Computed example of a mutant assay.
Amino acid sequence: MTRFGYTLMTEQSGPQDLVRYAVGAESAGFDFEVSSDHYFPWLDSMGHAPYAWAVLGAVAHATERVGLMTYVTCPTIRYHPAVVAQKAATLQLLADGRFILGLGSGENLNEHVVGQRWPSVDERHDMLTEAVEVIRELFTGDLVTFQGRHFRVDSATLWDLPDEPPEIAIAISGPTSVGRFAPLADHLITTEPDASLIERWNDTAGAPQIGRGAKAIGQIPICWDPDEQAAVERAHALFRWFGGGWSVNSDLPTTRSFAGATSYVRPEDVAQSIPCGPDLDAIVEKVAAFWQAGFTDIALVQVGDEGQDRFLQEAAEPLLKRLREAAPAS
């Protein structure tokens, strides 16, 4: 059964609003909620970047049923993996076992703030591999001393550890990262509805099988609004960076860089990739590409802080009903 999630977009809303939206999304019937983890928004017009882990802690107590997940955290530069392990274990306790730790190799936009250089993609993958090893060792509850190429851990242990540690999902972007991370993860994350990535994942030795316990978790922006033109304008103002793709978005360092890189993107260009307006069937048609590609879990991003309450109160329930009617039952 395809599961549908709601995105707590930290780049476009403040912390108190995000907690309120999380409660509203649970009430509307979403199955799970994912949170971005940014130090910067993508564009200045988005206007926010609260600390995702504090928000998720509040959401864990404000909700009862929905699964929670980082989408995604980078455990290599801004955060040491030992600290990520501690945060994830604590959140799993607060959420009563509802949390999945979503990890990725990060974006320069968020990691440059601690003043370290931005590594090449190959080195970032090496760092993420080592970080996953550290996190999993700490999840055992043992006293861990670790000496790797990129990270050291000195006599660390997690004092507050849940009975079941969080499962780990890892963001992948292509065949190379699939081969690297599929054997290390419990679940796959990617934002492109590419069936070949899932097929390659399932064909990788040692990988948990998607559709047989492992999840393929995707994400898609939408911009619902009763006024189609207003939706297009909002999507263009806030989400025109979306079409750049991972290879571009991971390397640009500042909001000014993203503004420059997207200065020639037109509203009509954005409307071609992001369903905008009141037509729920048009949204379902876009989302369908993910379950057709084999995704088990799909998180929606409602673009913009403005109108978020109205989306949850007026559109979310009928949209979820149509999505569940259209999606495969298994």
Rank of each mutant, 00 (worst) to 15 (best):
Q16F: 02
Q16K: 06
L18I: 00
V19C: 00
R20V: 02
R20W: 00
Y21G: 01
A22Q: 04
A22K: 04
G24D: 11
A25R: 07
E26G: 06
E26S: 03
A28I: 03
A28K: 07
D31F: 02
E33D: 09
E33H: 04
D37G: 05
Y39P: 01
Y39G: 07
Y39T: 14
Y39R: 08
F40V: 05
P41M: 11
P41G: 13
W42M: 15
W42Q: 13
L43S: 06
L43D: 10
D44N: 14
S45T: 14
S45D: 10
M46W: 03
M46F: 01
G47T: 10
A49H: 09
A49K: 04
Y51L: 07
A52W: 00
A52F: 01
W53G: 00
A54N: 11
L56E: 03
L56A: 11
G57C: 09
V59E: 05
V59C: 08
V59Y: 09
A60I: 09
H61R: 15
H61T: 09
A62Y: 09
E64R: 15
E64C: 09
R65L: 11
V66A: 15
V66Q: 11
L68V: 13
L68R: 10
Y71G: 08
V72C: 11
C74E: 13
C74A: 15
C74K: 10
T76A: 13
T76D: 03
I77C: 07
I77M: 12
R78Q: 08
R78D: 06
Y79A: 03
P81I: 10
A82I: 11
A82C: 12
V83N: 07
V83W: 05
V83E: 13
V84I: 15
V84W: 02
A88F: 12
A89W: 04
Q92P: 08
Q92L: 05
D96L: 07
G97M: 04
R98F: 02
I100K: 03
I100G: 01
L101Y: 05
L101E: 01
G102C: 01
S105I: 12
G106N: 13
N108Q: 08
N108A: 14
N108M: 09
